[in-house]
Nucleic acid binder design. Structure first.
Lengths: 342, 342
DNA sequence: GTTAGCACTCTCGTTAGTTGAGTGCTAATG
DNA sequence: CATTAGCACTCAACTAACGAGAGTGCTAAC
């Protein structure tokens, strides 16, 4: 069911005013502010209709109206036009992306912080774990008599490293050699399949160095455990301090806690996120703790896995801006990551 | 000037009650609570004295007393006994330290988070930049036709890495060779002195690979810029949400902003921090923004440079606990870092 | 020096009254 | 018949007044 033109216009006016001021908006004020060619009384009639339809609600009888969650949903689905980045923002973005960037985790964090700056909401980027990447190179660099640094390079250019203990009898050259054998045998293997497949061949070839093999494998195992979870980059969580709906300390604390704990944040996100920008408003969120917030999320392609990028803010959110910005940055992430990073 | 025994006892009682409840404490209540053998009236007389001396103050005539900042200072200087970690806390700490720890930055962040957990204040650890460390090993691992991964290992076991572009004409073996020459010539050089000293020798030896040398040097330069600043690890900043003195949103925001921005946090710390635990109370802090907070900081020895570890909390702080815990963890950090980490 | 007693002060929470923005309804209008 | 002016009505927010309670300071007695 779609609204006639006048009702749409009124709904939109109310949404924009309410998003801006966080106050219920009255009939008179929107007529004035948006130069509508109708009287306040007419607007009141329309508002009564919109309320009956469920798009507006009144905090109390003698107050103005505020958009209901259903109202926001209708707006987002049927009326919203995503607002893209303006020139100065684009320029800022390009400046950021042209700065010295060593690895793609830098790109992610910079884009995240840009997102929160532009929208004034908290932003997050979920980066899928690298568990499906392949080995590319393994090196063992001696540090001291008994220790060495194990380096594992994956095909997407991620470098893992860990200190290991080695028998003092083993020489630096031999360590290098062992590294090379590892590289030759394992190169191209999925990180997670490593244990099962080529292990036997490896044992065979280095049979007199079983100890070192085991140490290395164990270290690899530990490193892998360290990257099992998708990593989360959060920016601008303090933006919610500016929203009047969170003047309540308890609410505030709940939200900030979620924003501080990666695990919690991952739990609240909608399971299915496609490439399209996905908006969940208030109660549409499955997690109890954020039923007073809205999410704007999109998926991006992170070396074949689905990553997520988005913002979290009050229900009274500038969805047009948030959706447009998230979409743009999703595309840029896709684009940047599609040039394989080595 | 020191207080007589009874005044001390009263001051301490007031401090402990006030720290616990955040409410002004009255004469009657401390007599009851601490089973003092004197009457409330006597206590009132003593309190009047203490107020005159500047150790106590009254929010208004008909309220109890609260310790003034001078009062806290006197307590800290002349009466406080640092409270060390209890058994369960020690056990927790050891469990944490025995978990898998790959490199010392893990130690730092774990100790930081332990500190904030135990004290219930926000904790910070300042880790000096590694600019004074020495090269230990340089490796160049080919990634693709035109790119390679540059690895720089320092003597304290920190690994820097960065992707570089290499001419497609150069072979993997040659890259390795170049890495080895770098290692041989530069090993033992301070990172920051690199440019000046052995550069000529290097250019000499690899004169037909000038391009690659420059690329590598440039990359090293960029990596060094990335570690020029001391890094900061903050934990438990949300603890301040529990303190009633920060129910005011503006205050809260100021503080949280400081705790989110490394740079700001570094600015507010006292310049001179010795190995001893250093306490600055309220207005004793130079920075305007934290004149309503207290700092408990100690320096630790981070591979020859001075690092800092401490907590930041309300003036109404459990100084005894904070000071004891900071001291213990300072020592542990010293101890852990003194076994050179390779 | 210490303490009991008491008048005094000031905050806090409650209640009652006032104000003003905004509505809903009705009747008049084009 | 849609629109509008007019008006009575509602309710949150603000203010003032008031009593209760916690705590003090002072005085006089021990």
């Amino acid at each position: 069911m779609t609204l006639d033109k006048r009702k749409s216009q009124i709904l939109e006016s109310i949404i924009r005013d309410y998003v801006e001021t966080a106050e219920p908006v009255g009939s008179r004020s929107i007529v004035k502010k948006h130069n509508l060619k109708i009287s306040a009384a007419t607007v009141r009639n329309e508002m009564a209709d919109l309320e009956e339809m469920g798009y507006l609600e009144q905090p109390h009888t003698s107050a103005g109206r505020i958009p209901s969650q259903v109202g926001f949903r209708y707006y987002v689905d049927c009326m919203m036009q995503k607002e893209t980045l303006d020139d100065s923002e684009l320029e800022l973005l390009h400046r950021i992306l042209n700065e010295n960037i060593g690895e793609w985790s830098d790109v992610v964090s910079k884009i995240g912080s840009f997102l929160s700056q532009v929208t004034n909401y908290a932003s997050f980027v979920i980066v899928p774990s690298i568990k499906l990447s392949e080995f590319k190179d393994i090196q063992i660099i001696p540090l001291s008599e008994r220790t060495a640094m194990l380096l594992v390079l994956t095909d997407i250019g991620v470098l893992l490293h860990r200190k290991i203990e080695v028998p003092p009898t083993i020489s630096g050259e031999e360590l290098q050699l062992i590294g090379r054998v590892f590289t030759r045998v394992l190169s191209g293997t999925k990180l997670e399949e490593m244990r099962r497949n080529e292990l036997k061949a490896l044992r065979e070839e280095l049979r007199n160095r079983r100890k070192v093999i085991d140490t290395v494998l164990e270290a690899v195992d530990i490193m892998m455990q360290g990257c099992q979870d998708d990593s989360v980059v959060i920016s601008g969580s303090l933006n919610i301090l500016n929203e009047p709906e969170f003047k309540d300390l308890d609410k505030l604390k709940r939200i900030l806690t979620i924003l501080e704990e990666d695990v919690l944040l991952k739990q609240i996100l909608p399971d299915m996120v496609g490439e399209e920008v996905n908006i969940t408003i208030g109660n549409e969120n499955k997690a109890e703790d954020i039923k007073e917030m809205s999410l704007v999320v999109a998926g991006y392609n992170n070396f074949g896995e689905m990553g997520k990028i988005g913002v979290i803010g009050p229900i009274r959110m500038e969805y047009w801006k948030a959706a447009g910005t998230v979409e743009s940055l999703r595309n840029i992430l896709d684009q940047v990551l599609s040039k394989k990073y080595y």
